[in-house]
């Protein structure tokens, strides 16, 4: 069956002229590309040393693969009522949106999440090598704009020494496109009135901002009352970090040989 697949691959390959293609990452190996037969050889794949923008020094940093698996597990543990009231975006969507690639696709996927019928929507943001968590609160409650029950945005950043407002323009453009995709009647004045807040959250010690983002989502999910006032949420939601269950994260790290 390998031979049959290779024949199909050759057929598809011959239908398109070969072009000079720029590699995606600077660290990609400069050696010649492997031929089709080499790509099909299982032993040769293990010899490939090319990797994109990471090396051994980045072992401890959290990447999107582990983040997604862990967030899926967090989502399984909550009850049905919260699962319908909350939603989360994939961690790659914001990066794909800001880089311009697949922007329309990302907005289509976001529309399927039904942002305006959720109480909280978690948007993990990994950009410029740093994790943040954007929480969209009560976006469907447009009549309560300006009050505690109205729509608002929280940017939870565990590294406050960097400038947290550098993401503001990206987030504003992101929210405006979400409104446009949903064909909402609110105009740009309304969107500008949705305030972006930077609440005080526990700060990280090392380079574990990704774990802190998972921890923030975990604290939101552990909140018992669905309709709790957010002003109380700031004080009560974030207990010290040792409360966070680290064991599943370690198992994922072992799974991927990090």
């Amino acid at each position: 069956s390998y031979f049959s697949f290779y024949v199909c691959y050759t057929e598809c390959k011959n239908k398109r002229p070969r072009r000079t293609i720029k590699p995606a990452a600077r660290n990609v190996s400069k050696s010649a590309l492997p031929s089709g037969l080499d790509a099909l050889n299982p032993n040769r794949r293990t010899l490939r040393t090319a990797s994109s923008n990471r090396d051994k020094k980045n072992k401890d940093k959290l990447d999107t693969e582990i983040f997604e698996l862990y967030l899926e597990d967090l989502w399984k543990d909550i009850d049905e009522e919260k699962r319908s009231a909350y939603a989360y975006f994939d961690s790659l969507w914001f990066h794909m949106y800001t880089s311009g690639h697949n922007k329309s696709n990302v907005l289509k996927w976001i529309k399927a999440k039904k942002v305006f019928s959720r109480q909280y929507v978690f948007v993990p943001i990994v950009i410029w090598g740093h994790w943040n968590l954007l929480v969209l609160c009560n976006f469907g409650e447009t009549d309560y704009l300006g009050t505690d029950k109205g729509p608002r945005m929280l940017l939870l950043d565990s590294l406050k020494t960097t400038n947290p407002t550098r993401l503001r323009s990206n987030i504003k453009r992101f929210i405006a496109d979400i409104f446009k995709t949903e064909e909402r009647e609110e105009n740009e004045q309304f969107i500008n009135k949705i305030c972006l807040e930077f609440p005080e959250v526990p700060q990280q010690n090392g380079d574990e901002c990704g774990i802190y983002v998972l921890y923030f989502i975990y604290c939101f999910l552990q909140n018992k009352a669905l309709g709790e006032d957010f002003s109380q949420l700031v004080c009560q939601t974030f207990p010290p970090l040792p409360c966070f269950p680290f064991a599943p994260y370690k198992s994922y790290a072992n799974m991927f040989s990090l």
């Binding site: 691959y9 293609i21 590699p23 995606a24 990609v28 190996s29 050696s31 590309l33 492997p34 089709g36 080499d38 790509a39 099909l40 794949r45 490939r48 090319a50 990797s51 994109s52 923008n53 990471r54 999107t64 693969e65 994939d90 790659l92 969507w93 696709n105 990302v106 289509k108 996927w109 399927a112 991927f256």
Partner: peptide
């Protein structure tokens, strides 16, 4: 095959279907 063609490490890329 795709990662071999473009010299990518399969662990560092993610494939997303039309539904996201």
């Amino acid at each position: 095959l795709y990662c071999g063609k473009h010299s990518l490490d399969p662990k560092t890329v993610k494939f997303i279907d039309d539904d996201g």
